[in-house]
């Protein structure tokens, strides 16, 4: 069993049932089109597992956030793809949505991630369709990414708005 499989199975088990995206949030039919690997869909795979905590957290800028990937924990894998991509540009919305990673099917969790390098990522839980509904759920998701073998910065949960924090404006926290 891969690290990814083990880590995200634990997450699936903790969450229980996958959730369907709220139908009212589907703005157009394009948002339900399933993306495929030739169009840029990727599966999350194990990292090499040993990343020391950096001394200072990164403060992301607008340009970096344009390279964000969307991620979704599906029934059997974790899918991700760049939000701004050629496939997305062909859709009515101009970018992909989390439902393009699932074809509109149920999923356990979702958000965005950025690669700082091959082994280090910044993760948030920003997804209107599948996003974590609590700090605990977000913490479980980012821990799964860390246990899959990556160094992970989490943007954390914004208590003031009661939803996951976005990339811009605050320092992320290192996930140990």
């Amino acid at each position: 069993m891969t690290r990814t499989k083990k880590a995200f199975d634990q997450l699936r088990s903790a969450i229980g049932q996958p959730r369907l995206p709220p139908p009212e949030l589907i703005a157009n039919e394009d948002q339900l089109r399933q993306m495929h690997p030739p169009e840029g869909l990727q599966q999350w795979t194990d990292g090499n597992g040993s990343v020391n905590a950096p001394s200072t957290p990164p403060l992301l800028d607008l340009k970096q956030t344009k390279a964000a990937h969307l991620w979704v924990v599906r029934e059997d894998d974790v899918a991700h793809a760049q939000e701004h991509c050629a496939f997305g540009a062909s859709l009515e919305s101009g970018v992909i949505k989390h439902t393009n990673l699932t074809g509109g099917k149920a999923a356990y969790s979702g958000g965005e991630l950025l690669f700082l390098d091959e082994r280090t990522i910044v993760v948030n839980g920003c997804s209107g369709r599948y996003g974590p509904r609590s700090k605990a759920e977000l913490d479980q998701a980012v821990r799964a990414f860390a246990e899959s073998g990556y160094g992970v910065w989490s943007m954390g949960f914004d208590e003031e708005t009661n939803c996951p924090a976005r990339f811009l404006g605050t320092f992320p926290e290192w996930v140990v």
């Binding site: 703005a27 800028d61 920003c126 996003g131 708005t161 976005r166 811009l168 404006g169």
Partner: peptide, 11 residues
């Protein structure tokens, strides 16, 4: 639609 909207334009 996305659960939140950014109110920051620069870090």
């Amino acid at each position: 639609f996305e659960g939140s909207a950014p109110l920051i334009t620069s870090p």
